[in-house]
Every structure is written in structure tokens, then in C-alpha cells.
């Protein structure tokens, strides 16, 4: 199939491994799905300390289950990416370790206190949900199929994040103040989640034309702000003065781009931002430490081929 035919046929769940897709499509889809899968893994990496530091048994269980879900999403998404025939899962995980794999800007920041957890679990996951819901009708069928499960579980994660936020904002004055401080710090990053408004994205045009992407960054950010500004206020959070956000007459929002730190954003996009680099390297060190187990498994599977020996 040539790109012209792909563009003509592009529609929800239109293409699958049965179709002979042009390389340009397969590369663009791999880039998108790999980014998504990497983000699941690095998000899990960021949240894992709070399994231990959650302040109740039920919360601990919920954090453990959430982190486990993210790893499960990574597993599903790498599989969907592999189905394009460009890279294997091992190659993608290797790229993530080597600092070549890209992932969401918010997961490059450190998370030190429990009061920060709803910034990810409510706001960032809420923002991600907006994007993911549209991806149920992406043109690469395995990706859309993975999104069915991912979106279902993300719904629980956002509820978990919202419940923690509600608990903190109805807690002691100290808890409320700490949470507001965390919100002030995270809010600009959350806005940047959707990328710059006047982005001259080299990838967006093609991805939209072949039906991989369904909505522009601007549309998604707008939908997010419409829903989440009222939610933040409902829980007693004050929206920081910067970046300035103005409501247009048609109800949409205009974010003053100059109020955001784009140097930092692009540094992050290149995996050059210091806390993020530490997080990438930290994960790499943990993975290097268990390399020996994967080697044993590989040998075992080669000698014991034919026997059912699922490595789980």
C-alpha cells in the first residue's frame, strides 16, 4: 500500500498486521506507540516509592496495583509497537535504558513527597486520558485495541488520584498548604504536557493524515483545561497566576506561551534534563542488575525448547 492509499483509507482501526503498510506509516506509528509505552514505564518508576510511603494499607494496595497496571500497559503497548515490524521490544527497552527512548515531559521531574502523587495520578493521568480516549479510534488496530484496556484501567487511576487529592484538601491545614505548593510547582508542567501551541510539529501533520492521531495538541489541551480548572477549584486549589490563561469568548482558553519555560521543555524532549537523566540512569542500573536473570532465561529456553516454560 502506498502513502496515498493509506491517507485515503485512513479511519478508526483501519489497518492491521494483515495490511502491507508503507515504511513511513510503520515508523510514525512505532514512534508514537513506543513513546507511549516508555511513558508508562517511566511513570511507574516515578510512582513506585509511594507504594512504600503510602499512609494507609488500602492506599498501599492501590499504589502497588496502579504501578503494576502501568507495567502491564507498557507490556501491551510494546507488543502493539512490535506488530509494526520496525523494532523489537528488547530494542525499545534498550533505547529507553540508553537515554534514546523518549517519554512524557512530566515523568522527567522528581517526585519527593506523597502530596505530589495526585499531581500525576489526577492531573497528568487525567490529561493523558483525554489523549488516550481519542486513540481508541487510531488507524493502527493493535494500538486502538490496547487502548481499550488502558483507558479502562486509567479511569481507576484517575479516581485514585482524585480521592487522594480530596483527602489531602480536606485534611489538616498543613496538608492543604503542602498540596497547594505541589500544585503550584506542577501546574506549568501539566500545561506543557500538550506541547507548545504554535508547534511546528514535523510529526503531527503526517500522523493526522494517516489517522494515527485524532486531535491536535491544542484541542486536547483545551478540553483538559475546560474540565480540570473547575475540578482543581472544586477541591480548593488556587490556579497559579502564571502561566496566564485567558478565556476566549467562545469558551476556549488561551495560554500565554511566553510564561512557560520552553527551554526546559525542549531540554526534556531531548532527554537532557538533569532529574530525568537520573531517573533514566536509575532504571538502567536496576535493569543491568538483573541482566543475569534474562541471560539464564534465554539459555533455559534454548535448551528446553518444546517444553511449556513461560517465563513469568
Amino acid at each position: 500500500m502506498d502513502v496515498e492509499t493509506v491517507t485515503e483509507r485512513a479511519g478508526p482501526r483501519e489497518f492491521s498486521p494483515k495490511d502491507d503498510m508503507p515504511e513511513e506509516y510503520r515508523k510514525a506509528a512505532t514512534r508514537m506507540i513506543q513513546f507511549h509505552a516508555n511513558s508508562e514505564i517511566m511513570g511507574a518508576y516515578l510512582e513506585r516509592p509511594f507504594i512504600r510511603q503510602a499512609p494507609s494499607l488500602d492506599r498501599k494496595l492501590a499504589f502497588s496495583a496502579k504501578v503494576q497496571d502501568e507495567i502491564g500497559h507498557g507490556q501491551l503497548l510494546y507488543r502493539a509497537a512490535e506488530s509494526l515490524g520496525i523494532k523489537t521490544r528488547e530494542e525499545m527497552l534498550r533505547e529507553l535504558e540508553e537515554g534514546k527512548g523518549k517519554f512524557l515531559n512530566c515523568f522527567h521531574y522528581p517526585m519527593d513527597s506523597y502530596v505530589e502523587t495526585p499531581m500525576i495520578a489526577f492531573f497528568v493521568d487525567g490529561a493523558a486520558m483525554r489523549r488516550q480516549a481519542t486513540l481508541k479510534s487510531t488507524s493502527w488496530e493493535p494500538y486502538a485495541h490496547a487502548m481499550d484496556k488502558v483507558c479502562f484501567e486509567e479511569g481507576f487511576h484517575v479516581k485514585h488520584g482524585e480521592d487522594i487529592l480530596r483527602e489531602l484538601m480536606t485534611g489538616s491545614r498543613k496538608e492543604q498548604e503542602m498540596t497547594q505548593e505541589a500544585f503550584d510547582e506542577w501546574w506549568p508542567r501539566i500545561i506543557q504536557f500538550f506541547g507548545p501551541t504554535d508547534e511546528q510539529s514535523t510529526h503531527h501533520g503526517f500522523a493526522a493524515e494517516v489517522g494515527l492521531k485524532q486531535m491536535s495538541n491544542d484541542q486536547l489541551r483545551n478540553a483538559f483545561l475546560n474540565a480540570y480548572i473547575p475540578k482543581a477549584r472544586k477541591y480548593g486549589l488556587e490556579i497559579p497566576d502564571y502561566p496566564r490563561i485567558e478565556k476566549r469568548d467562545d469558551g476556549t482558553y488561551e495560554v500565554r506561551e511566553d510564561d512557560l519555560d520552553w527551554d526546559e521543555f525542549f531540554k526534556i524532549a531531548k532527554n537532557d534534563y538533569e532529574p530525568g537523566v537520573g531517573q533514566i540512569d536509575g532504571r538502567k542500573a536496576a535493569q543491568d542488575a538483573v541482566e543475569w536473570v534474562r541471560d539464564v532465561l534465554d539459555d533455559y529456553e534454548q535448551t528446553a525448547r518444546g517444553q511449556p516454560a513461560a517465563a513469568d
Binding site: Q68, I71, Q75, R294
Partner: peptide, 27 residues
């Protein structure tokens, strides 16, 4: 739970997470 996001493979990560949650549930 220290093995979460640190297990040798994604599959073993999921299995050990299950076990950790079972034990927490028993506790």
C-alpha cells in the same frame, strides 16, 4: 514491592506485584 519496576522482565514484574498484593491482602 521493592521489585516493582525492577524485576528482570515485564512479565516477572507483573507476577511479583500480584504476589506482593496477595500478601498485603492477607495481612
Amino acid at each position: 514491592t521493592e521489585w516493582q519496576v525492577r524485576a528482570p522482565t515485564l512479565e516477572s514484574d507483573l507476577s511479583l506485584s500480584n504476589i506482593a498484593q496477595d500478601e498485603l491482602g492477607h495481612a
